[in-house]
Simulated scan of single mutants.
Amino acid sequence: MITVDVTRISDSCGWGVPIMEKTGERDLLRLQAEKKGVAGMAQYRAQRNAWSIDGLP
């Protein structure tokens, strides 16, 4: 169980958010996966996804 004490919550009114338009999909993830191959992606996941950002397994 994880307990979080929230001391502040804020949001934006939206006035400063730029209007964005979808012009297409990014292909960077696909290209990286193709370059590494199946074995390389398995090794990458084993190294990078073993722990969370907080160091939890």
Rank of each mutant, 00 (worst) to 15 (best):
P57C: 02
V17R: 10
D5A: 07
S12M: 04
S12W: 02
A33S: 15
A46P: 04
W51Y: 15
A42V: 12
L56F: 11
W15Y: 13
G24R: 03
T3K: 06
I19R: 13
R26E: 13
P57S: 05
E34V: 06
M20F: 01
G14Y: 05
L29R: 14
G24K: 00
Q43K: 10
L56R: 08
T7Y: 11
T23Q: 01
V6Y: 03
Q32C: 13
D54V: 05
R26A: 11
L28M: 13
G40T: 07
L29N: 09
N49P: 00
C13K: 07
I9C: 07
T23S: 02
K35F: 10
G40Y: 10
G40L: 08
L31R: 15
C13P: 02
L56E: 12
K36F: 15
N49L: 13
S52V: 01
R45M: 05
A50E: 03
I9M: 10
V4K: 04
D54L: 12
N49E: 12
K36P: 00
I19H: 12
S10Y: 04
D27I: 08
E25D: 14
A33M: 15
R26T: 10
V6W: 03
A50I: 01
C13A: 08
Q32F: 14
D27H: 15
S52Q: 03
A39Y: 03
D5W: 00
L29W: 14
G24H: 01
D11C: 05
R48H: 14
L56T: 05
S10V: 06
K36D: 14
L56K: 08
M41L: 06
W15C: 14
G24A: 02
P57Q: 06
M20Y: 04
S12R: 01
P18R: 06
V17M: 08
Y44R: 11
V17L: 09
E21R: 05
R30V: 12
P57W: 04
N49T: 04
R45P: 00
D5G: 03
A46Q: 10
A50Q: 07
S10K: 06
D27C: 12
D54T: 09
Q47V: 07
L56Y: 10
V4H: 06
Y44F: 14
S52Y: 03
V38N: 12
G16I: 03
S10I: 06
L28C: 11
M1A: 09
L29S: 11
R45T: 02
Y44L: 15
G40I: 05
A39I: 06
T7F: 09
L28S: 15
D5L: 01
K22L: 05
R26G: 08
V17P: 00
V4A: 11
T3H: 05
I19P: 08
V17K: 09
P18S: 05
K22W: 02
V17C: 09
S10R: 08
V6Q: 01
K35E: 14
Q47C: 07
S12Q: 04
T7G: 05
S10W: 05
M20K: 03
N49F: 14
A39F: 04
G37M: 09
E34P: 03
V38F: 14
